[in-house]
Amino acid sequence: MKKMTLKVALLAAMMATSGFAVAMDEDSYRAEHKAATEALNKAKKVGGEWRDSRWKKSTAVKVDGKKMSYLHAAEAYAAKGDYKNAMKYAGIAKFEGEMGYQQAMDQKNAGPRH
């Protein structure tokens, strides 16, 4: 009986921990998604958004046979509970937003160099 109780307790603990981990992953993903959206909005304001970050017609990533942008792929993976991939693609979208903004700032005074 004692052994059985221990097993049940262990199982309960494992389930609780995994639930906690999933919640943690989800929170991290939501934060990353928010940061990506903010970075992309900032890039958009200066005309520096890139094609595959979140453009509806992008074909950068294939999820379940459907082609989409990095941010949309992040959302698709999150909807399936795959937060590892969701984080990965939200991170790429965020990086592209930051780079697009930086690029537009660097090119603000672009002109001929011939």
Binding site: W50, Q103, Q107, K108, N109, G111
Partner: peptide
Amino acid sequence: KQFFYAKRGQLNLSCADCHVY
């Protein structure tokens, strides 16, 4: 003119990179 000469996108290329230089 700025739009034409400004590098953009993941490939960091401007219109001018291809059609001038």
